[in-house]
Design a protein around this nucleic acid. Structure first.
Length: 398
DNA sequence: GGGTCCAGACCTACGATTTT
DNA sequence: AAAATCGTAGGTCTGGACCC
C-alpha cells in the first residue's frame, strides 16, 4: 500500500486538466462584455481600489445631471472594473476552504466589491421591515463564493459576529434574532447549514410582484455599516435604478413605505441628489390662466419671462412646482436574468389571483421630449409633462 | 418642498444565567 | 466547561408635530 504522500500519474493528470479548465473559466470572466449577472449569482468582481460611491461623491454635483445620456456615460465609466489579479472573493466554506484561505487578506471586504441589488427587492425589504435580515441575505450571497446556495451556520456566525472579523455586522444574539426573522423569507436552516433562497423566492416572500427598476451595484462595504446606512442605501437604490422623472414624496412613501421625513434623512446619508422641478403653462392673463391658477392652488406662481426664453420677452406665464427629481449614488448593474425572474414572478402571482386589482388612477406622466408627450396625450389623455430647458417642464392636458 | 425637536420604538453590547 | 439564551441599559432610528 502506498504511503499517504504518494500521488498516482492519473491523479496528477486530472489535477492539471482541472487547473487548465479553471484558467479558461477565469479568462471568460474577465471578458468585458460578459454578462456578469449570469455568473456568481450576479455578483460583480470589483477592483480593490475602486469605490463607486467615493468616485460619485467626488464629482461636481451638476456633472451629467442635466443629461440622461451624459449621466449614463458617466455611470458606465464608473462601473466596477474587473481585476483578476486580486482574489476578492471571501469564503465561509468549511469543507472547501483550506486553512490558508481562512483569515487570508483576500478574505476581507474591499471598497470595490459590490453585490447586485434589485431595487424592487430592496424596497420590499423596507416595506416588510426586513432590512436587517435582508442585509444578512445580501452578505451571505456575496460570501457564498462557490455559488452553492448554502453556507455553514457555525462558520457564518464566526464570520459575522466575531470581534475583529472584517465581516462582523452584529453580535451573536442579534444574528440569532435575524436568522429567525429571515427564516422562510431569505433562507431555511437545515443540517447545520443556511440554505439561501433564490431571488425569485425572496421577491415573492417580500410581496414583490415584478422587478421594474434596473439592478444596481451596491458596494459590500455599505452592507457592513450601521443598519441606518444600510436602510438608506436600500432606499437610495430605488433612485439609482430609475430614470430621473419627477416623483412626489407621497408617491415615494406609497412605493417604499418610507415616511417622507425619513426619505430626506436617507437621501442625506446615501448621497442621493435632488433637483426641484417647475412646470410652465400658458400666459398668466386670460381665462385659461385663471382656471389653471385655481386648479394648481398654492403651488402656482407667476413667472415673468424678461429675456424672452419662452416666447415674446416680458410676457408673464403661469408656473407651478412639480415633485422633485432624484439621482441615486449607485452604479447600474447588468440586468442579467431580470426578464426571466419577472416571468417566474408573474407565474407565481397569477396562481391564486382572483381579480384585477390594477391601479387605474390617472397619474401625471413625464416624458423626455414633446413628441413623446404628444403621442402619449393623444393616446390616453390626462396630464402629460415633457422636459424643457433647465428645471422647467411643459404640460399638456388638464 | 425643507428643517428642528422630541418621544417612543428598535438595535446592540455586556454580563448573568441556563442548557447541553 | 462550553455554548446558548436572557435581562437590561444605553445608543440609534423613526415618525409626528410644528414651523418656514
Amino acid at each position: 500500500m502506498p504511503d499517504s504522500g504518494w500521488v498516482s500519474p492519473e491523479l496528477l493528470a486530472a489535477q492539471q486538466r482541472l487547473q487548465h479548465l479553471q484558467s479558461i473559466v477565469r479568462e471568460q470572466r474577465q471578458t468585458p462584455d460578459q454578462d456578469v449577472g449570469k455568473i456568481d449569482h450576479g455578483r460583480i468582481p470589483p477592483s480593490p481600489s475602486f469605490n463607486p460611491l467615493t468616485q460619485l461623491s467626488l464629482l461636481p454635483a451638476h456633472l451629467g445631471w442635466e443629461s440622461e445620456r451624459v449621466t449614463a456615460v458617466l455611470r458606465q465609466r464608473q462601473s466596477p472594473k474587473k481585476d483578476n489579479q486580486t482574489d476578492w472573493t471571501p469564503t465561509l466554506s468549511v469543507e472547501h476552504s483550506s486553512p490558508i484561505e481562512q483569515g487570508d487578506l483576500a478574505n476581507r471586504p474591499t471598497a470595490g466589491q459590490t453585490v447586485k441589488l434589485y431595487p424592487d427587492i430592496a424596497l420590499g425589504m423596507l416595506r416588510r421591515e426586513q432590512a436587517a435580515a435582508g442585509r444578512i441575505w445580501l452578505l451571505l450571497r456575496h460570501l457564498d463564493v462557490n455559488g452553492r446556495g448554502w453556507l455553514d451556520i457555525d462558520a457564518t456566525r464566526e464570520q459575522l459576529t466575531r470581534k475583529g472579523s472584517p465581516w462582523r455586522v452584529c453580535g451573536w444574539r442579534q444574528l440569532r434574532n435575524l436568522l429567525n426573522a429571515g427564516e422562510n423569507v431569505f433562507w431555511v436552516r437545515r443540517d447545520g447549514r443556511i440554505w439561501l433562497k433564490s431571488t425569485v423566492k425572496t421577491a415573492q416572500s417580500l410581496g414583490v410582484t415584478r422587478l421594474q427598476n434596473r439592478p444596481v451595484a451596491l458596494p459590500v462595504t455599505v452592507l457592513l455599516g450601521k443598519i441606518g446606512e444600510v436602510r438608506a442605501h436600500l432606499y437610495a437604490s430605488f433612485h439609482s435604478g430609475r430614470a430621473d422623472a419627477p416623483i412626489s414624496r407621497a408617491a415615494l412613501e406609497e412605493t417604499s413605505g418610507i415616511h417622507r421625513r425619513t426619505q430626506r434623512r436617507y437621501e442625506k446619508v446615501a448621497r442621493v441628489r435632488r433637483r426641484r422641478n417647475f412646470a410652465i403653462g400658458g400666459p398668466a392673463a386670460g381665462e385659461n390662466g385663471e382656471e389653471r391658477a385655481w386648479r394648481q392652488g398654492n403651488a402656482a406662481f407667476q413667472l415673468k419671462d424678461y429675456q424672452g426664453k419662452q416666447g415674446a420677452a416680458g410676457k408673464t406665464y403661469l408656473a407651478w412646482q412639480l415633485p422633485n427629481s432624484y439621482a441615486g449614488p449607485h452604479a447600474a448593474a447588468a440586468k442579467g436574468r431580470q426578464k426571466r425572474i419577472n416571468r417566474e414572478l408573474t407565474d407565481l402571482f397569477m396562481q391564486g389571483m382572483t381579480g384585477n386589482d390594477q391601479d387605474n388612477r390617472l397619474r401625471r406622466r413625464f416624458c423626455g421630449n414633446g413628441r413623446t408627450a404628444a403621442q402619449l396625450f393623444s393616446k390616453t389623455g390626462g396630464n402629460v409633462y415633457w422636459r424643457g430647458k433647465g428645471n422647467f417642464w411643459y404640460s399638456i392636458g388638464n
